[in-house]
Design a protein around this nucleic acid. Structure first.
Lengths: 243, 243
DNA sequence: GACCTTCATTTTACATGCAAATCAGGGGAC
DNA sequence: GTCCCCTGATTTGCATGTAAAATGAAGGTC
């Protein structure tokens, strides 16, 4: 059910805890561990072939970051994000993405612009193939991560990263309309356009509108049984591919 | 140097890790562990009379929260916040405190108002005695924490709490002018006044201005050797009590 | 005195041991 | 069929063991 990415695939320079954390985080954000999945420390330790200590520390980090929840003596499980959560989440995210776009505009370099455009172009390619929601989410994450990088404000990054993570986690279960990815890409392009004009306020507003519209679109999405479907999918094995 | 608060003083319902975390966090925010202080896990474990595991986990939490920093194989130390850090920090904090005030205004109940006014009144009392910067910081924290509570947005709280923690950490080393506490209190009162009018936008603006002015005041403060004094105090052992 | 080198101490990063809590899954009792 | 209790397996929360890295003091050389 979960091909052990085996850790070996990761930068061996880092600590085991760090690498374990990356593996688990990616698995969650790629929906390989859907919301509701239990994160048993001994089990993961066996599967990843490390001791329990690094796994425990990685799981705690996921908890602090809000990708997992914890109940006393009952362990952790991948967070289930419901509509109300998302509403509150996007209220915060709107401000922070706006700030990121504003700061990024002030510091935008030629290289950065090239990289941003490459992401947009990759994103277009992915949407052309269509149907692949995971690839869309991946590109969406790359775009927003790049914005944070350009903004170069360590506190903003540290603050926004977990927020963005939780948002993207929710996307797997809550996206609905098929044109949402296309709308998102259009809005990304608008943000970049605003940044190119060199007007920070404009970029901020474009980014805020983007998040605000995401929120509206997600709120309108059929709330198809708030993740209970996910939990079922997680408990019953995800074997049947096209369930 | 550090009277072991011994953990026993804390809610015995919680886990050891949780209680250890609270003890360390309070010690840092009260400047009992000034910036630069090394957080040696075995040493703290001895002093607090618990095993190393809960201490290690508590320290990691402080690191994720940004109250401590970590260097590979060299352990953690209490974060040193410099002026540039603070500038970036307050840019983020301004937005989030604004949001908190806006949401709090929409949900303000009679009890909440009583509590807020009580905090303001306690704050006045403390400033009347004067000279006690720690008490001012404590009341400042209480005020902003209460605002977050009233706002009742879990994601905002989770996001703003570490930011506020780091801000308050910096206050111990970077406050300067003697009238800063009084100005802060005045601005708190303005925020509450705005909330009472029931106008969320006004409250948001008042809160943003408060943070923005804090930033300016802190930036103007004599940067008295960015915490190096603190580091010296921390390294030389504070053994001789009144060293 | 300035600069190495060595060696003991401490600490980190990870592994493992273990009591107590929780959960899964049968039987019975009704 | 439903409720309840029991039992065994698993897991959490904490404690402890330990190799390798980092630190620091002592001593030797120039």
């Amino acid at each position: 059910m979960f091909q052990p990415p085996s850790l070996a695939s990761l930068p061996p320079g880092e600590s085991l805890t760090e690498r374990t954390y990356e593996v688990l985080r990616n698995a969650i954000l790629r929906n390989q561990f859907p919301p509701g999945t239990a994160l048993s420390v001994p089990r993961l330790a066996r599967e990843l072939d490390v001791s329990r200590t690094p796994v425990r520390e990685a799981v705690q980090r996921l908890i602090y970051e809000g990708l997992a929840t914890h109940e006393s003596h009952r362990g952790a499980q991948v967070n289930v994000v419901d509509i109300e959560d998302l509403r509150q989440l996007y209220l915060v995210r709107e401000l922070l993405e706006g700030l990121a776009a504003r700061l990024a505009t002030e510091r935008l370099g030629a290289d950065d612009l090239v990289e941003l455009r490459r992401i947009l172009s990759d994103h277009e390619d992915v949407l052309a193939v269509d149907g692949d929601n995971s690839a869309h989410i991946e590109l969406d994450m790359r775009f927003h991560r790049k914005l944070r990088d350009i903004a170069a404000n360590a506190h903003l990054t540290a603050t926004l990263e977990p927020i963005a993570g939780r948002s993207h986690l929710a996307l797997h279960s809550l996206w609905r309309t098929d044109d949402a990815p296309r709308l998102a890409l259009k809005e990304h392009e608008r943000i970049v356009d605003a940044m190119v004009t060199g007007d920070p306020e404009l970029a901020e507003e474009a980014a805020r509108q983007h998040v605000s519209r995401l929120r509206v679109r997600l709120a309108q999405s059929t709330p198809r049984a708030q993740g209970s479907a996910q939990i079922a999918a997680a408990n019953g094995k995800a074997g049947g591919a096209h369930g």
